[in-house]
């Protein structure tokens, strides 16, 4: 780690310039948003009942989506990393599709799958559960990718050691594999949670837009943008603050070294 730092600080000026460019690309729009934010009415706007309702719903949906991603994504990552079933390369490609698919198309695809006339009609559209599923759909690849990479980086002999000590397959997974891959899972969870929190296109297409039920914060921002731009900017700042706080809070945790 230390060697890495040293070589980074002694890297050529070009690296610094490019890094600064990246920061400008991300930071400048953010700064623009903050500069235009209506600070005098901000507190009033973000504590409005409709804003709090959207925030609550957003947190609930994104956390629900994260839970769904963890429950389904970690086992999927394990299968991708560990099994040798033929066609796994195709599965891996399919898992990545939600990352490249325009979210609106993803939402439509979800309708074809789980809509009223879908392959598996679950009556999800226009429900909060539908919003959770839409968010999980776009967020899942982040968790699976990070977890699979973590699993591939593990020394499998620890599992052999556990087996020698009498641990069965499930026990090995829970007590040895999972704790060791936890940092990777946590990193993936932070990414997929952030993706779920900001989700817009798939949610609006699949779950619709109804305050208190499916109108998450990004949707509320979009609606507010059409009527009350200051409120929209205030809500955006709120969304920004929540995500930055959580991700910054997560960093550095979950490591045992």
């Amino acid at each position: 780690m230390r060697e890495g730092r040293v070589s980074a600080t002694t890297a050529g000026a070009g690296v610094w310039v490019l890094a600064a460019g990246a920061l400008v690309l991300i930071g400048l729009p953010l700064a623009g948003l903050l500069m235009r934010a209506p600070w005098s009415t901000l507190l009033h706007d973000v504590t409005a009942p409709s804003a709090l309702q959207a925030l609550r719903l957003s947190l609930a949906c994104s956390l629900g989506a994260l839970a769904l991603c963890l429950v389904l994504g970690v086992p999927l990552a394990w299968v991708l990393a560990r099994s040798s079933v033929p066609g796994l390369g195709l599965v891996r490609a399919v898992v990545l599709v939600p990352m490249v698919l325009p979210p609106v198309v993803g939402g439509a695809a979800l309708l074809f799958a789980f809509g009223r006339r879908g392959v598996l009609p679950l009556r999800l559209p226009f429900t909060t559960a539908g919003a959770v599923v839409a968010e999980a759909f776009v967020a899942l690849p982040f968790l699976v990718l990070a977890t699979e990479a973590g699993l591939l980086g593990l020394d499998r002999r620890y599992e052999e050691a556990a087996r020698v000590l009498g641990a069965g397959p499930w026990s090995r997974f829970v007590h040895v594999t999972l704790p060791q891959v936890a940092p990777a899972v946590a990193a993936g969870a932070a990414l997929s949670w952030a993706r779920a929190l900001g989700e817009f296109g798939a949610t609006i297409t699949f779950a619709g837009n109804l305050p208190g039920r499916t109108q998450t914060l990004p949707l509320a921002v979009y609606v507010a943008l059409q009527t009350d731009r200051d409120a929209a900017l205030a809500l955006s700042v709120l969304l920004l603050a929540v995500s930055v706080a959580v991700i910054a809070g997560l960093r550095g945790r979950w490591t045992w070294r």
Binding site: D155, R157, Y158, E160, A161, A162, V176, P179, Q180, A182, W256, R257
Partner: peptide
């Protein structure tokens, strides 16, 4: 084991 393989998280 030769390199012991103590579980790093415990």
């Amino acid at each position: 084991f030769q390199d012991r393989l103590l579980f790093p998280h415990l």
